[in-house]
Design a protein around this nucleic acid. Structure first.
Lengths: 73, 73
DNA sequence: GCTGAATAATAATTCAAT
DNA sequence: ATTGAATTATTATTCAGC
């Protein structure tokens, strides 16, 4: 189910250095979840993950704490 | 100069709802900065901006507070 | 070192199916 | 409502020039 997968995604992002959505999709497949990049893209949106560029220049996905100042609806 | 432009970028992101880098580039051109998407991409990396997906589904760029738990070097 | 044009790589969406 | 395949849109990078 979706919720399950998303829980794993969070774990993965926290532990591994995921640099692309394909990479994440692969990692998920390793865990037994058969997903494609399309789905990962949607999960990422749902979970509010984003690519951040570390000071070293490499980019990777991270969980994003909600920190909005401008309205959102 | 670069620093100037980046200051404006932050303002723009805070005030307007910038959804793509092209959009940001345009906004900058309105302010008198002649830039292309390539440069904006680099600025965004430098400033640690990222696209976040608001609860409503729309995505836009935001300033990202550093909130890393996993190592970064 | 900073930039743009062109390109490559990546991510979001559409559309159909379930 | 969720997903994948294919497509489109967007972003990152390369390469050359300044």
């Amino acid at each position: 189910m979706k919720k399950n997968r998303q829980k794993v995604i969070i774990e993965l992002v926290k532990t591994k250095r995921i640099e692309t959505q394909e990479e994440l999709a692969e990692a998920l497949r390793d865990q037994g979840f058969q997903v494609t990049q399309a789905t990962v893209s949607r999960d990422i949106r749902n979970l509010n993950l984003t690519k951040v560029s570390g000071s070293d220049g490499r980019q990777h996905y991270t969980i994003l704490e909600q920190q909005e100042n401008t309205v959102k609806k």
